[in-house]
Design a binder for these strands. Structure first.
Lengths: 205, 205
DNA sequence: TAAATTAGCGTACAGTTGTAAGCTGAAAAT
DNA sequence: ATTTTCAGCTTACAACTGTACGCTAATTTA
């Protein structure tokens, strides 16, 4: 085996070890370098051959998590194209993501309100990316103004993330009920934005 | 001075010390018993005369923070009674709270998505309390059904908390803009809920 | 006044942490 | 074939953690 290949493999082992440590009870800031190293099967000091800090590893994890989210969005768009309501399909996709990658989503949630400025900023960037794409989609499909579409998208993303956080602690049946609730709530936002946009445009004439 | 009084005073010192340590960079789980003791001006072991754990202290903090929130809600209701829109007044009150008690709000935010089940549950209870009162208020002022009012209130609370989290990192001007945005978004929800409720009732006839 | 209670302290210990220093052996470069 | 590079190791250390144990001095109780 190549030297570079071997190094990449170890790097993967470190990243996977970190993910596996991020269960319900642990956050990035409470995971120690030695613990990660132990779990990855390397000596503590070997960690430095791959990352400068635990923080550098953390940023890598956030980036990977963000990438997973973006892939999720693409998947959702594909499903919409092949029929099914926008809201319903998006929520279902999101919920599936949370189920399948709960540790990844938990990471984003925790670091979103976490103690590291760098991590917070990184997560915020990912969420804004998320919002941006939803804004564009909204403009294209509803003809709303950019500012209105952006307001609507932002509200929706915040609501969905907030609901996702709640879903993490629930069983499957409760998750299904929660999904129904959030779909209805998203319809409130979408309908409200539409009505208010109409009001604004007619009152100006 | 009484012995009990003295003990209460020290207990306060411990609690205040913990709050003062909870700045942008620290969370409850990263604050050590020794650190709190040091900051409160007592010996590490004296901590145990007041709390069994660091966790017991944490729960006390969450409870106090929740109480502060409930007081905030009462204050907001008073202001609404003396004129001013419900939404606008509530958001302004909330934003003032975040400004004046940022460490308290940060505590709630962090522990809401944090690593301790007990803390998460405690924060969740406070938020549900918050939602419940808004639901009742909505029923009383709009005549919406309980289920619709509850959906609306839940969405609003999640949106406001989410926005509050974002506001923590911003300067005053940005906060003001954010407040405007969230007010508009809340109107989306309120209007949408109303319209959909009407649609539902007419379609049934 | 004598006895009991107790808030707070000092000492101590075992366990953890991050990371500095230098070694080894195998892969890569010359 | 020889040298260089470098991923991973072992050892080591100082700093920090939670908390057990027992003492002290002051307040409270009897």
């Amino acid at each position: 085996m190549n030297r570079q290949e071997q190094k990449q493999k170890t790097r993967r082992a470190i990243i996977d070890a970190a993910y596996s440590l991020l269960d319900e009870q642990r956050s990035l800031s409470s995971v120690s370098l030695r613990e990660v190293a132990r779990c990855a099967g390397i000596a503590p000091t070997s960690f430095y051959r791959h990352f400068k800090d635990i923080d550098e590893l953390g940023l890598t994890l956030v980036d990977e998590a963000g990438l997973a989210l973006r892939q999720l969005m693409r998947q959702a768009r594909l499903r919409i194209a092949s029929g099914g309501g926008v809201i319903s399909t998006s929520v279902d996709t999101f919920m599936e993501f949370i189920n399948a990658n709960s540790n990844v989503f938990r990471l984003l949630l925790r670091e979103h309100t976490g103690t590291s400025n760098a991590f917070r900023a990184a997560v915020l960037r990912e969420i804004q990316h998320f919002t941006q794409e939803l804004t564009d989609y909204t403009i294209a499909t509803t003809g709303l103004s950019r500012s209105m579409a952006n307001l609507q998208a932002e509200a929706m993303v915040k609501l969905v993330f907030s609901t996702g956080a709640e879903a993490l602690d629930l069983n499957n049946e409760q998750k299904a009920q929660l999904a129904l609730r959030v779909k209805q709530q998203l319809r409130f936002i979408s309908t409200g934005a539409l009505v208010i946009a109409e009001q604004d445009s007619t009152s100006k004439r």
